[in-house]
């Protein structure tokens, strides 16, 4: 499924307790707090392990999330904008994470830049719902996707480091 390192990281992300989606007016704020707690912990852990790789923030009601993720390849940092909506069926179904700037560059993507997760992700999420949250989505969904796709895109020349791009155009 996933490598040992990811597994260890995931086991360190606290599980969530509140089963509530954005339509549940009474409990959603509590769920949202738990999401932030888990995300903060995950980012802190990543920083401590010298593997900080994403930032996320939401609108006030927590239904739309935006952020950045980055990937270090051959000592160069490649940064991407990421976004997703919380579906009404969350947390029974996971949000569809999109990296719009990579849309059309890889076939491992649906329209609008939504990343195509492996066939293992949906069962994994379903088995752990509602205890998995957005931090788990990052760790088990986006993380492994970037690790596979970005080096490939760089090798194909479809993703070019921003500074190199500038040098090339000068």
């Amino acid at each position: 499924m996933t490598d040992e390192a990811t597994r260890r990281t995931v086991s360190q992300i606290p599980l969530l307790k509140t089963h509530a989606g954005p339509r549940d007016r009474a409990l959603w704020p509590q769920r949202l707090k738990e999401e932030y707690q888990a995300l903060i912990r995950f980012v802190e852990q990543n920083k401590a392990a010298d593997n900080d790789w994403f930032r996320l923030e939401s609108n006030a009601d927590g239904t739309r999330w935006t952020g950045t993720c980055w990937f270090i390849h051959e000592l160069l940092r490649y940064e991407f904008h990421l976004e997703f909506d919380i579906p009404v069926t969350y947390p029974d179904t996971a949000p569809e994470v999109a990296v719009p700037e990579l849309d059309g560059k890889t076939s491992k993507m649906y329209r609008g830049g939504k990343i195509c997760l492996t066939e293992h992700f949906a069962p994994l999420w379903a088995r752990n719902a509602p205890r998995f949250g957005l931090a788990h989505l990052m760790a088990l969904g986006l993380g492994p996707w970037l690790a596979v796709e970005v080096p490939d895109l760089i090798s194909k020349g479809l993703v070019v480091h921003k500074e190199r791009q500038r040098e090339a155009s000068e």
């Binding site: 932030y36 707690q37 980012v43 923030e57």
Partner: peptide, 8 residues
């Protein structure tokens, strides 16, 4: 929590 996340 939102502010804390932003500050990270």
């Amino acid at each position: 929590l939102m502010a804390q996340m932003r500050k990270l």
